[in-house]
Computed example of a mutant assay.
Amino acid sequence: MQHDKKSITQEKKRHTRKHTTGSTRKKRIILLSKAKAGKVHDKKQLDEEDWVSNIPDAVAIEGDLGYQGLQNEFVNVHLPHKKPKGQELTEAQKQENREFSRQRVKCEHAHAGMKRYNSVTATYRNRIPDFDDRLMLIAAGLWNFYLDTA
């Protein structure tokens, strides 16, 4: 069976929606934004929510490289080291990134816990306004309930 090269290499273009979430190291979801278009950059979406300025400086905020530049605006924001163009990270920076990743993986586990409720990951075809926000809120609530009962 032959495949047309164009169909194999062609990207599936989708109109995606995404949420910004905040979680604790105990995997509990504590912040959830309204859905935005998938093409909106992570940092821009976070700036529109204006969460970071309301969090005290004593509380450490850890993010991924999608929030690059936020560490220059706030003292409590910590991001991994970004590899300089044409150069490599030092061994100390690599070690810091590994330690940072060990802490941030708990946040990723919280996201995976919400996604276990397939309603937030499956293709959404309804036309009801803001229904995806309700689904995500329910999934976050169920995940937090699961953590409380486990």
Rank of each mutant, 00 (worst) to 15 (best):
D50G: 11
I138M: 07
Q103G: 10
L46P: 00
R14N: 11
Q93A: 06
L135Q: 04
I138D: 00
R98Y: 04
H111G: 04
R116F: 02
Y146S: 00
E62L: 13
Q2K: 07
D148R: 04
W143E: 00
R116S: 03
T21R: 02
V120P: 03
G141P: 00
Y67T: 03
L142V: 04
G141M: 04
M114H: 02
K6W: 14
R127V: 10
K18L: 04
D130T: 12
D132E: 13
A140P: 02
Q10C: 15
T9F: 09
H81F: 13
L79R: 03
E49T: 04
E99R: 09
V120Q: 07
I29R: 00
F131A: 13
F145K: 00
D132P: 01
Y117V: 00
K6D: 13
E11S: 13
F100E: 08
G66I: 12
K12H: 07
S7E: 12
T90S: 15
E11N: 13
Y146T: 01
R14G: 03
T149K: 12
W51T: 10
E49K: 03
K34Y: 09
Q68N: 09
G141W: 00
V77C: 05
V75L: 03
R14M: 11
V75P: 06
Q87E: 15
R125S: 04
G22F: 02
Q2N: 11
L135E: 02
K39P: 01
H81R: 08
T123S: 06
A139E: 01
D47E: 15
K39D: 08
Q93S: 09
V59P: 04
R104G: 10
K43V: 12
A60M: 07
R125C: 04
H15Q: 10
H3F: 14
I30W: 03
W143I: 01
C107W: 01
R98N: 12
P84V: 05
K36Y: 11
P80N: 11
L65R: 13
K83G: 05
K85C: 12
K26F: 09
M114L: 08
L142Q: 01
T21W: 00
Q10A: 15
T20P: 03
P129A: 04
L135H: 01
K13S: 10
T16S: 15
G86M: 06
N144Q: 03
Q68P: 04
E108F: 00
E48F: 05
L31R: 11
G66L: 08
N97W: 04
L31S: 06
Q10L: 14
R134Y: 08
K39A: 07
L147G: 01
S23K: 01
A150S: 14
M1K: 09
K94H: 13
F131N: 09
E62Y: 14
N54R: 15
Q45R: 05
I30R: 05
M1T: 09
A60S: 08
Y146L: 01
K44A: 15
Y67K: 05
K36Q: 15
K18H: 14
E88M: 14
R17Y: 11
S53R: 12
S7K: 09
K44C: 08
A60N: 07
I55W: 02
S53A: 11
E88Q: 15
R98G: 07
I8M: 10
C107G: 15
K13T: 14
E108H: 03
L70V: 06
T20D: 13
V40E: 08
A35W: 01
I128N: 09
T16E: 08
I128E: 11
V105M: 06
E11W: 10
V105L: 04
S33L: 02
R25E: 13
K26S: 15
